[in-house]
Structures are given as C-alpha cells and as structure tokens.
Nucleic acid binder design. Sequence first.
DNA 1: AGATTTTGTAGAACAAATTCTATATTAAGT
DNA 2: ACTTAATATAGAATTTGTTCTACAAAATCT
Lengths: 216, 216
Amino acid sequence: MNASNSYSFLIADDHVVVRQGVGMILKELFLSAVVYKAATFNDTFKILKEVKIDLLILDVNFPDGNSINILAEIKAIQPDVKILIFSALEESIYAMRYLNAGASGYLTKESSEDEMKLAINSMLSSGKYITQNIKDKILDSYISKKPTNPLEVLSNREMEVARLFVKGYGNLEILELLKIKKTTVSTYKNRIFEKLEVDNLAALIKIFQLYHDETA
Amino acid sequence: MNASNSYSFLIADDHVVVRQGVGMILKELFLSAVVYKAATFNDTFKILKEVKIDLLILDVNFPDGNSINILAEIKAIQPDVKILIFSALEESIYAMRYLNAGASGYLTKESSEDEMKLAINSMLSSGKYITQNIKDKILDSYISKKPTNPLEVLSNREMEVARLFVKGYGNLEILELLKIKKTTVSTYKNRIFEKLEVDNLAALIKIFQLYHDETA
DNA sequence: AGATTTTGTAGAACAAATTCTATATTAAGT
DNA sequence: ACTTAATATAGAATTTGTTCTACAAAATCT
C-alpha cells in the first residue's frame, strides 16, 4: 500500500477489454485504487521498475514471450510484489507450475465476478489465493518433493522416450529406434504422463515448451 | 434502435471481465445504451428470443458448443440482428468463415479501444465492419487464390476437428463431442494432415502455434 | 447448365496403442 | 545389510485409431 493509503495494482494483459474489465472490478472494490495497465511484457517491466505495485494481475499469455521464468524476472525487479495469475488456461496442471515459479495466486478467466473479488481481497490480506482444487493438488505433490523443473522427475530412459514423442515420433518409430517392444513404449508413455500429470500429447508438448527444452 | 431511442446490445462472452470491459466501452459510446449480457449459448438464445437486439457482440468460443453454424440459429431467431464477432482467434483464418456464415463484422480481442469503438459505430450505421486486412483478402481471393495462412485450406469442419486435436482431445472424445463416427474423425484427421502436409500431431501443433493465436 | 471437386459422413477390415500384470535389476532409505 | 521403491522391460487381452472404399450434398469450374 502506498503513501496515499490506497493499493496500487498493475494489470498486465494483452486485451484491452480484459484490462478494462479487471480495472472496473478493482475500482468497485477500492474506490481509491491506483491502477496501472500494461499490454506487453516490456510495458510490464517498465512499470514495475518505476512504481511500487502491491498486486500484479498477470496474464501469462503475451505475444512477446510467455515462458514461465518471467515470473522470476518480475520478482527480481520487485521482490515483494504479489502475483495473481489470471489465465485462460484450465487451472489443473498449469496452476501448480506458476505457483512453483513464484506466483501466489491463480485465477482462471472463467471465474465469476465474486470469485475474482474474493481472490483479489485474499491476495491483499493474506498474500495468496488458491482454490480448493489446487490446495488438494498441493497437498498431494508438495508434501513429497518439488522439483523446480518437472522434467527432472523423468528417468533417463523416460526422458529419451518423451523427447521422441515431443518430436512427433509414433510408438512404432520409437520401438524401432530403441529396439524395444511396443508395450514397453506404452509403459513409458504412461509413466511419463503420470509423472508429469498430463494425459495427452498436446499437454506434454506444452510442458516441454514451458520448460524450454531445446528439442521442442 | 428501440422505442426509447437508444440502441440495444447483447454481449455474449463466457468471461466476466470481457463482458464488463465491452459493456464499459458501450456505455462510453452511448450513455443510454441498453446492454444485455450472456455467458452461455443458452442465455444468448434466451435473450434473443425475448428482446430485440440491434447489435450482438459475440465470442464464439463458448464452453457449451462453438461451431460456426450457431450463427444460422441466431439469424433464425432474429433475422435482422447484426452480429459482430469478437474473438481471440486469428483474423486471417476465421474472419472469412464467420462472415460467410452470417456475421457482418469481425473484431479481434487484440484491437485497441479506438478500433472497437469504430467497429461498433460502423456496425450500427452501415451494418458492417471489416478491417482493411480482410478487405484486402477478399480482393486477393477474387484475383488469385493463394492462402496466406496455411490453415485457411481447412474446411470449417476440418478446422473444428483440428483445433480439438491440438487441444489434446483424442479421437474418442472428438467423436463424442461432435457426435460423429470414429472413422469420420479419422477421415478428417487424414485430410487435415494431408492438406497441411504433416504426418503427426506434434507437427500439427507447431503449425497451430505459428499460425493460430489462440488462448487455450 | 453440366461436369468436376470438395466436403461431411460412415462401414468393414485391419493396424496400432493401451491396460493390466509380471519380473529382473538397480537405486534409495533406515 | 536389508527392505522398499523405482526402473527397464514384455506378454495377453483389449481398446483405440487407421485404411480404403463409398456416396450424397454442396461448392466450384468450364
């Protein structure tokens, strides 16, 4: 909260309507809110360097890049800024990754106005906001261990196979290349999917992209 | 325009913030605007059946179905309603499809506030709004037929199926969603792969990343 | 208008991939 | 050291996906 006793927000989203819509909700919640808006990463960084922000509402789907490590960059500039991810992606898999990477809240664009307000309030008071859904997931996987890069959980062989899948090879090609049986390939595929908590190739590819593995 | 001499709008979009944002812009343009909002197709239809709408601002990306042919259904209810598509999808691939299907304007969510206002005004006065970009395309297609975007070669149905594949849906899910037989899904997949000259899902996804700006 | 191509759809037969179970080997934990 | 968990590997049975062919309706070309 700044000197004039009102919260400062930064809405970073590439769509005007979204910036407007979120801005409106913010104004409804806090009459005196100071609301900054950014349409690109560059703008986002620029503003973060200039003014102290209490809450950054961030859509990670920018045209000028969107890998997960920008969260670290943001924190490097303003370590205390609270980040609420506001994404059009289904929370399930992605939320955890963003939370691990430095965000302290995750909200989907499908959320109702009430939930959005709840989330914003919660971020300001307790510094975080997580849906029950995600809390459950956290219990599941946080309790054990949390590798920074999810791909680390794969064994060497699994990684080998995963790369081939991401490159577009089918089971038959992989079986051929590695000289193993088709059921073995399927077994790996299964373990890979389980470990990374995905259930289809498209999601696997996204993870590889997110964690910028050259092979993608 | 209705009896009380003010325009009536219907904003159909599944995201609250977008509805708010567009609503705000509408109110800025026309103080006396009557603005209805719908978050689903069902709501959209319900409202269309009840009140006369001058301009429908429609995001066709609903959770409860989103094929192009709903435009026909809308027209069946209110033949005179003007439809402005407001979509996050790449203009070059989709605009023509929607225009052919009954819309009379296409605006991407990346548009600036000014452009949005221009579009809305244009829809109300001349009944249509097309960006220069698309006008060029129409001219081009009159002269020579060379697709700028490779995805243009897909038929509407093929596009629908391709998107589902890219999202990670399997044949079974797609067959279920579109209520078609499994061989039909395979046939589409084949035609899609042939037309785009790829032979695996990973490659298809890459093309979509390159040529299809979609937030999902 | 008539001919040709594209599109939306599917059946029969076949190929590919998955499940579930299992086992030997290695790595990790206490 | 001794036990437990993870890894690399498959077989049998089953499920999922593909091919190839086909056909009517719509769109496009001549």
